[in-house]
Design a protein around this nucleic acid. Structure first.
Lengths: 102, 102
DNA sequence: CAAATTTACTTTATAATATAAAGTAGTTTG
DNA sequence: CAAACTACTTTATATTATAAAGTAAATTTG
């Protein structure tokens, strides 16, 4: 089951990040950390994966001499997010094919 | 005594930094930290003072996603460093005026 | 001149992210 | 089912920065 769902979004934290960004479009690392309640290390890793997939872009700068990381959702990210939920709907409203039970 | 000496160079750590930079011209934060044996916090503060005085320029970037701080000595810095030692010589070879002893 | 301030330097703690290592869990394989 | 692999999470440590606290030296004050 869940065979078709985008594995990159099938993760609590990554999905939370994407859900937030799909609305706000962009957010600072710290904000994402607070909103998702994740640890910095974990968030850093998951952000890197979303970036690698092209779902978000990441800008690293400095603010008041401290490192500042800003994340923005990309068109591909929005697309992937929407597809994810359409795929999900497929599970909620099953068609003629009955799902295989193992 | 020591009335004329540049107060910005009359500091163990700042002088050590300048002494190193006057030879190498530029150095990374970490290298300065090792060479001077200082703590990161202290070095950060003293670098800021040298920069404020225009004796060094500071570039902040990222290397392998980690913050990287590069310090470079400026012409004014070289000038100040040389003047400092000329002033010092004045104390080693006193002229006709005898120093005031308090 | 001794006490009280002030000033400056240093250390220590904490902030903002990143990577690496270690722990956990779920899944696949033999 | 035990062994191995995956993936996610937490924890420790890496880079620097600022703020707070400690120390010391110099200067003002009474």
């Amino acid at each position: 089951m869940f065979g078709e769902l985008d594995p990159l979004l099938l993760s609590q934290l990554r999905l939370a990040v994407m859900s937030y960004l799909v609305v706000t479009r962009e957010a600072e690392f710290n904000v994402l950390k607070e909103k998702t309640g994740s640890t910095a290390g974990n968030l850093s890793v998951q952000i890197a994966k979303l970036q690698e997939a092209g779902y978000i872009s990441v800008e690293k700068t400095f603010r008041n001499n401290y490192p500042l990381t800003i994340c923005r959702i990309t068109a591909a990210g929005v697309q992937a997010f929407e597809s994810f939920f359409e795929d999900l709907k497929g599970y909620l409203e099953p068609d003629e094919k009955s799902p295989e039970l193992d």
